[in-house]
Amino acid sequence: MIDRSIATQIVELIKTEGLEIGQHLPAQMLADRLRVSRSPVNEALALLHEKGVLTREKNRGFFVAKPVVEPLSEVVSELGLAETDLVTSVYFQIADDRLKNALPDEFSEQLIRNRYALTSAQLTAVLGRIAQEGWAERKPGYGWQFSPMLTTPDSLLKSYRLRLALEPAALLEPGYRLERKTLERCRDVEKHLLAGGIETDTADQLHERGVRFHESLVEASGNSFFIDTIKRVNRVRRLLSYRSMQHRERYAEHAKQHLHVLELLESERNEEASVAMREHLLHTLDALSQIREILEP
C-alpha cells in the first residue's frame, strides 16, 4: 500500500522549491530529505508518474512534468492524495496505544494484524513506516520490539531543555551559513502555516515541518555533533509530539517566531537570532507545560 503522505510531500517540495519542467528528482535525495527509505519514495514517484506530475526516463529516473503553481491543498485534492489513508490511521492508533501502555514492549506481527484488522499488505506498510521512523524494530529471529522512546511529559520537557542548550549555540558556530534556498524554503513553509496550514495539515505534516525547520538551521552550523544530536532527539520525541498537536492554537505564534529567527539570520544577526531561538524554545516549553494533561497516558 502506497503511503500517500510521501507523494504529497514530494508535490510540496516541487512547489516550494519552484522546480521546473525537466528537473530531476533523484530517489536517494528525496529519501534523505524526507528521512525515509528509498522503497516508499520509489512507490510515491511511480504514483506521481501515473498521475502526470512526473515523467519517467529509462535508466535515468523521474523528472518534473509540470510545475506546481496552484495552492497545495487544491493540487493534493485534485490528484486524489488527500483521501484518508488506513495505514496512517492505524499508525496513529498504534502510537496512541503505545503511549497508553496498551501494547507490550515486544510483540508479534499477528498481534498487530488481529488487533487492528489489517490485511498482509497493510500490516507490512504500517510496520515498515514505524520501523523507518525508529520507534520499533524487528528482533533477531522472530517478532518485534518497541524502541525506547519519550513516553512521559517529563521526558518531552527534558528533550526541549536539551534543545534549549544546543540550538541557540548552533547559530553561533564559526562559519555558520544558511543557504538562501534553504532560508526561502523555510520561510515559505511558515507562510503556508499562517495562511491556513495549521488547521488543515495532518499531524505528520505539522511534525515534519517543525522538525525540518529546526534541523535546517542546525545543519547550517556545519557541526556534526550538533546535527547528529538534534536529529536523534527529534526521532525519539515523535510520539508525544503527535499527541501535543491536539492543541494547535500555539502554532500561529510559533510560525511568527520562526519567521523572526529567519529574518535575523538573513541579516547575519546571528547573536540576536540565537537569543530569539532561545526565547522561542522557552515559549514552547511553557506551552507544553500548560497542556501536559493531554500528554499523560
Rank of each mutant, 00 (worst) to 15 (best):
I2V: 14
I2Y: 05
S5D: 02
I6C: 03
I6E: 01
T8V: 13
V11R: 00
I14H: 01
I14P: 01
K15V: 00
K15D: 04
E17W: 03
Q23M: 09
Q28P: 03
M29C: 02
M29T: 04
A31F: 02
A31I: 07
D32I: 03
R33S: 11
R33Y: 03
L34K: 03
V36G: 02
L45H: 00
G52W: 00
V53R: 02
L54P: 04
R56M: 05
R56L: 08
A65Q: 04
P67Y: 06
P67H: 01
P67A: 06
E74R: 13
E74P: 01
S77L: 07
L81I: 05
A82I: 07
E83N: 15
T84Y: 03
D85G: 05
V90N: 08
Y91P: 06
F92I: 04
D96I: 10
D97P: 12
R98P: 07
K100A: 14
N101R: 15
P104M: 08
F107S: 14
F107Y: 09
Q110V: 01
L111A: 13
Y116A: 07
T119R: 09
S120W: 10
L123D: 04
V126P: 01
V126I: 10
L127K: 04
L127G: 02
R138L: 03
P140A: 12
Y142V: 12
G143D: 05
Q145T: 14
F146W: 10
S147N: 09
P148I: 02
P148N: 07
M149F: 09
M149N: 05
L150F: 13
T152M: 03
P153F: 15
P153N: 13
S155P: 00
L156S: 15
S159M: 12
Y160K: 12
L162N: 07
R163K: 15
E167C: 15
P168R: 13
P168L: 13
A169F: 08
L172Q: 10
P174S: 12
P174H: 06
R177G: 04
E179N: 02
E184H: 03
C186M: 12
R187G: 01
E190I: 01
K191G: 00
K191V: 08
K191N: 06
L193K: 12
G196M: 02
E199D: 13
T200F: 06
D201T: 05
D204R: 09
H207N: 13
V211A: 14
F213P: 09
E215T: 00
A220S: 01
R235K: 13
V236Y: 09
Q246N: 13
Q246M: 04
H247E: 15
R248C: 01
R248N: 09
R250I: 10
Y251G: 01
A255Q: 10
K256T: 00
H258F: 11
L259E: 10
L259Q: 13
E266M: 11
E271I: 05
E271T: 11
E272K: 08
H280K: 06
L281T: 07
T284S: 13
A287T: 15
L288K: 02
Q290C: 11
I291P: 10
E296R: 10
